[in-house]
Structures are given as C-alpha cells and as structure tokens.
Amino acid sequence: MIRKFAAILLLAGIASIFMGLLFTYEPDAELNTTARYYAERTAADIGATNIVTAIVVTYRGLDTLGEVTVLFLTAAIVGLVLAHGRRRTSDKRRLAPVGELLATGSRFLAPLIILLGVYVFANGHLTPGGGFQGGAIIASGVLLILLADPCRCLSHRVIDTVESVSGLFYVGIAILGIVLAGGFLDSHLLPRGELGALFSAGAIPLIYALIGLKVGAEFSSILAHLSETEEL
C-alpha cells in the first residue's frame, strides 16, 4: 500500500515537472547563435549535407570518441563478467530446433540487414543515420544469426580484431588531424570534395565507417558473450 502510494506520488511529481515545461514552452522564432552557426557554415566548412553528422563527427568529435569509449567499456565489462560461464565447445546442450521459418528467414535476411547497416554508416554524411545507427543495425543482423542457431560460436578473435583495429585507426586519424589539419579529429585531413558526393566531407566517411564497425563489433561481442554463457 505504502509502496503504491509512493509510486503514485513520484509519478505525480514527474507529471507536474513536465506540465510546467509544457505550459512554459515557446518555440523559438529563429535559430540561436550556435545553431545558426552550424546551419550556415556546415556545407561550406565541412562539406556534409547532414548537419547532425558534421556536428557529431567534427565539431563535437571528442564527445563521440567518449561515447565510443563508454560503449567499449560496457562490452569489456560484459565480457569480463560472463567469461567464467563460457560454454565448452564440445558439450553443446540439447536445444529445441528453431522453426523452419526462423532458420530460412534468417539466412535470407541477415545479409540484407548487415548490408543496410553498412549503407547507413557509409552514407552518414549525406542522409540521416551514421556510425552508431549502422553499427546497431549490423549487431541486430548478428543477433538474428545467433537466434536462428544458438549453438553457433561466433569467432571472438574476428570480432575483437575488427573492434581493436577500427578503434586504433579512429584515434590514429584523430591524431593525424593535429599534424596535417587544424586539430584533433579535424575532418579536413582529406579533400572536401563535391557537396553531396559519396566521397566528400573530408575524413567523415572514413571516421564514420570506423565508428560503425567498432560499434557493430562491440554490440556483437556483448551478444556473443550472452549467447555463449552457461549460467544465466
């Protein structure tokens, strides 16, 4: 009873905060200074048609590096915690067979889902989406493979190598930016190119492809660890 009362009280409190926000909300008539700077200068400065990507990869690139690091830590901790319950490859448990629909469907869909993920991060500077979204889509393709065949062991060596190599190249490109361009994670490392072309916007496509591979590998490693552990 008292728990229910506390929950209702908490909900009412949150609701009152949101009501206050809602009733004092006034849409801005024009962009504020920072937003106007990004909206006006991105096409000329960075050469990306997707302003969000220009902000995420170049203007606020250090934040993105931090986010990737947080995700890496998560994957590492999941791996550390679940490493003890690793299933032996020899004694596979008897599992009920997955349905024909899932088995055939996953064989057909998983490559297409992974292709969509690659498309999303390769076009991150042109269309909505980017490395994080593409990586998550790739990981859902991997998850579909794992669901269809729970006994399949994904090669941890491949996943770890992709993850480390893309991370190293990401930081390497960032440091090259100090030497060859304006600063850490500056995307003017490569020529800006034509606005709207696939190979344009300097180093952004390269950086986003690396982020996509890294995020995809991190999520896949979390999923593979979860699927392989025995005591859950």
Partner: peptide, 14 residues
C-alpha cells in the same frame, strides 16, 4: 530522423 533511427535500431530492435 537521426534520433529516430537510433531509437528504432536499439530501442525497438536490439
């Protein structure tokens, strides 16, 4: 659309 894609891929899918 960027946030929408993240939400659909991670929140709804994964």
């Amino acid at each position: 659309p960027d946030v929408a894609m993240t939400e659909a891929a991670i929140g709804s899918g994964l």
